[in-house]
Amino acid sequence: MQKLEINEISAGYGGKEVIHNIDLKITEPAIYIVLGPNGAGKTTLFRTIGGILKPFSGRITLDDTDLFNSKEARKRIAYLSHLSALPEEMTVFNALKYYANMEGGDIEHSLELLSLSDLKDSKFSSLSQGQKKRVSIGKIFLSERELYLLDEPTSNVDPKISKEIRDIIIKLSKDKFVLYSSHNLYEAREIGTYLILIKNGELKFFDKIENIKAKQYRVGIKALNDISDLLPESEFDNGYYVVTVDNPAAVAKIINDLVHAGAGLTEVREIDNPLQEFFKGE
């Protein structure tokens, strides 16, 4: 896939517009984090790109082919909603087979990729929420696609599985386009290359995450020894000495000074996420 173009798209439900004149052009394989508060229009945007909703106006093209009117183009897209979208009365294997029969694909590959082989004979309805999510993700990996629309793929999943899913998606994004919605700002920053910020149905920001500049950075430092004398301007909060700097490069100097002073550092972590400030401010 060369490009996804979203041209002045407006869409919604029952004649009521939810997203307004969204204009985006995506040309680089990467993870595009779609961020926005509840009700901002993220799911509506995904549904419109996925051909589920017909746009009120505007056009979405995949390599210049209209997405809504081309079944062939839609076969190049994988859509993961926040619901399981699987026949709940079936076993895991048969639930995946249900879609494999319609769309084609390799069930064993999906089972292996999502570590589901042990569950393949289990009834889908008997699985935990996290396991259901994995099976649901499994269905979009039955066959290879070029554009992945992932609506909160790691919600309801434990941290270990969440990391495994993120690793799969990161690997996928080397040569695929991934639109990934999340409420988790740390996750967004960890895996995202680009940020698409949507508020009140409008596109507020679209750029590389690395280009986002925060006004200040708060860093928490834990040490074996009392370092309050070494960091006189820090606040002690919840076991951390919290220092505020206006440039991430300043953190390196602080750490270097503490190491030389024999502070016995045990942990250094970012307290605030720059995306958080950006998210509030935009």
Partner: peptide, 16 residues
Amino acid sequence: VFDKNTGVLEYLLSTG
């Protein structure tokens, strides 16, 4: 109705 509520119909629409 069951398929509508569990998102199966939504997914079917996404498949074309």
